[in-house]
Simulated scan of single mutants.
Amino acid sequence: MATMHQLNTVRHVRTLFISDVHLGSKAAKAELLVDFLRVHDADTIYLVGDIVDGWRLKRSWHWPQPHNDVVQKLLRKARKGTRIVYIPGNHDEFVRDFPGEHFGGIEVKLNDVHVTADGRRFLVMHGDEFDVVVKNARILAYLGDWAYDAALAVNSVFNNVRRRLGFPYWSLSSWAKLKVKNAVNFIGEFEKTLAEEARRQDCVGVICGHIHHAQLAEREGIEYVNTGDWVESCTAVAERPDGTLELIRWAEEARRVPVRRGRGAEVEIDDLPSVVEAA
């Protein structure tokens, strides 16, 4: 692992993969994503689903300025020549009605095959298409979404106390995913199924989101890449100029970092060093 955190230096990569931002929800770490996009440029950016949280916006409208800033930042990159591909997920499934359309320079696709600089083919998809709960038990999916919201709310209060006591951030939902047997089994089956789909489409790997569990791994002889999320882990996947994929953990452990915003004003935010895992 290498540590890299240079907020005043723009880093250029060949491709960025970002998913599960959930703009429109109170849990979205939009300010951290704006900071990330400010210091990362790419030839291509894939938005791998659940960028906008239509489920929550239907329940109650929540769209503060930082959420708008994320959209404006992406549109500005598109105007400057970055190719941006939006692959909708289950929370922004309304976008699936517009495959092939362009909105402000952002292209909508249901899925895509990305070819890396070293010639490897990766299937890019959100992943909910292979989630049997989302696909076949809609009410259970909504209940699970509500339970996740509740866990995030409890987690927020818990970590406010931990921060005041000098302890680092700890994720209740991530702990549950790794400790509860059914959740572990679900994640394993999800990864296996997506790996099989990648092989079926003659790809060496799959890049997805959906389950908010970032990692670079191998499943069934296929490279499995999950971009994670921007409600807890604040992670993204980048392709270096040589085709190497890396997992960037933009918020690994809480730390006060000065970041320049707006008209040069320097403010303090809870941020993390950007930790990079390369594969």
Rank of each mutant, 00 (worst) to 15 (best):
262 G>K: 12
131 D>I: 13
94 F>E: 05
94 F>M: 10
92 D>N: 13
145 D>Q: 09
116 T>N: 10
114 H>F: 09
66 P>T: 05
251 A>C: 13
118 D>G: 01
226 N>Q: 05
6 Q>F: 07
108 V>H: 08
234 C>V: 08
277 E>K: 02
45 I>Q: 05
191 E>Y: 00
28 A>R: 02
260 R>D: 10
91 H>L: 06
123 L>C: 08
227 T>V: 04
187 I>L: 14
121 R>Q: 03
216 L>V: 06
216 L>S: 01
276 V>L: 15
132 V>F: 12
55 W>S: 00
41 D>Y: 01
20 D>C: 09
99 P>W: 07
30 A>V: 00
36 F>D: 00
221 G>F: 04
176 A>C: 02
245 L>H: 05
52 V>D: 02
273 P>C: 08
11 R>Y: 14
206 V>G: 05
275 V>Y: 02
89 G>E: 02
100 G>Q: 06
238 A>Q: 07
190 F>G: 04
112 D>A: 14
253 E>P: 04
228 G>E: 04
153 A>K: 01
208 C>L: 05
108 V>T: 09
20 D>F: 07
94 F>V: 02
157 V>E: 09
269 I>A: 14
15 T>E: 02
196 E>A: 08
264 G>E: 06
115 V>E: 13
250 W>K: 08
244 T>G: 08
222 I>K: 10
171 S>I: 06
265 A>F: 13
153 A>W: 10
160 N>H: 11
43 D>W: 03
161 V>E: 10
94 F>I: 03
233 S>P: 03
260 R>Y: 11
123 L>G: 04
154 V>I: 15
222 I>N: 04
84 I>E: 07
22 H>R: 00
173 S>N: 08
238 A>E: 10
36 F>L: 10
227 T>S: 12
262 G>V: 06
268 E>R: 12
149 D>V: 15
